[in-house]
Design a protein around this nucleic acid. Sequence first.
DNA 1: GTGCTCAATATTGGCACCAATTCAGCAAAT
DNA 2: ATTTGCTGAATTGGTGCCAATATTGAGCAC
Lengths: 205, 205
Amino acid sequence: MRRRKPNKDLSDLLAADIRAGVYSPGSWLKQIDLQRRYDASRSEIRKSLETLFTKRIIRYEPNRGYYVHREDGAATDEIRDIRIMLETSAAEVMVEKVQQDQINGLYTLAQRFVDQIRSDKIMEIYETNIAFHTALLATSGNASLVDLISELRLRTPPAPASQWSSYARIEKSGQEHFAMVDALADKDAARLKAVIRAHIAQSDN
Amino acid sequence: MRRRKPNKDLSDLLAADIRAGVYSPGSWLKQIDLQRRYDASRSEIRKSLETLFTKRIIRYEPNRGYYVHREDGAATDEIRDIRIMLETSAAEVMVEKVQQDQINGLYTLAQRFVDQIRSDKIMEIYETNIAFHTALLATSGNASLVDLISELRLRTPPAPASQWSSYARIEKSGQEHFAMVDALADKDAARLKAVIRAHIAQSDN
DNA sequence: GTGCTCAATATTGGCACCAATTCAGCAAAT
DNA sequence: ATTTGCTGAATTGGTGCCAATATTGAGCAC
């Protein structure tokens, strides 16, 4: 039985486990099992399941329970298109509002990402990637946007870092990160948009 | 005590009541009161409250409960900007994918809206407005996008139809609806974007 | 009157149990 | 062999109760 850190929200933990593939797609999330696994109360479990259902990370059928979403290609594409719309639109705001210290921070994160590629700590690479994209979006000054994209990212198929397509693709991602920061520093919205679109369309990140 | 239709989801009903101003901003949503008012079980209430919290329609403090969100001007502006990003981006897809029968349907809805302006059934006008915008977005072919915007609309301050700014503004909205359909029929993405941006920026809809 | 302590009160959150529902397996009938 | 119907098991969802927590108000010292 895994003990859970008191501060960490249970629904986040559950979402991370789903994303990590602990529960196979289509399998039922039985409340009793979860209760034991996370050492949580029944109400906590019910609450977390309802949260994840509202966030569309899992599905629900009355009197049957919650189960892990079977990947739906069409919906995944739609979410990806939405992210492209949002992040390319945000690019215009970003070039206007970005501050020099934010650009410096982004360079740092982009560099950390490429530095980590050689190590095979996939989870760390994944997290640095997220951190980069979050910091990039934050330069738009729209906190709600940052939150929204984070949620959308979780709706995406549960098979992220664990099976990143290829080493070459990760390298390319690293380069694209730098390309984004460069375009941002040059305040070249069109170029930034183009890079972001291509980057998300690959949909590894 | 209000009885609830079995088919209607309780959280939607609650959200509608919050939006309609049944609960004043900042007031606590006491579980016992809700239980009585909606003739629901305690678990149903807890579930719905958690749903609305996840959707950011209400707030929550542990051991204190859920309460109606006090309007936050900054966040409202951010959501509005996000909607502008999404709906103007979608405009490009819309002009590509729209079908003739959808254009006809949009004209019908736009006409219904202006027809209803004279009647003072504000709730119906509000619903027609929503129906129009939903149908407009649907022409993008992205169902997830339609859902997402619906959710974003609910996050917006709880004071919508009940106090629509002015009669003149509603008339203007009606005209803008037609302008949108015209631009869409002409497949003029730039014009469509401009109208949508102006329309949402007024943020009455 | 002001500030402090402490008890009374109200509300949420957790728990154990029970009812309701669904499902799998199996047997009987066609 | 397929269908139908039944029964038992597993699971969710509802209920009542109680503990934990927060709020309120009264009493009291100063």
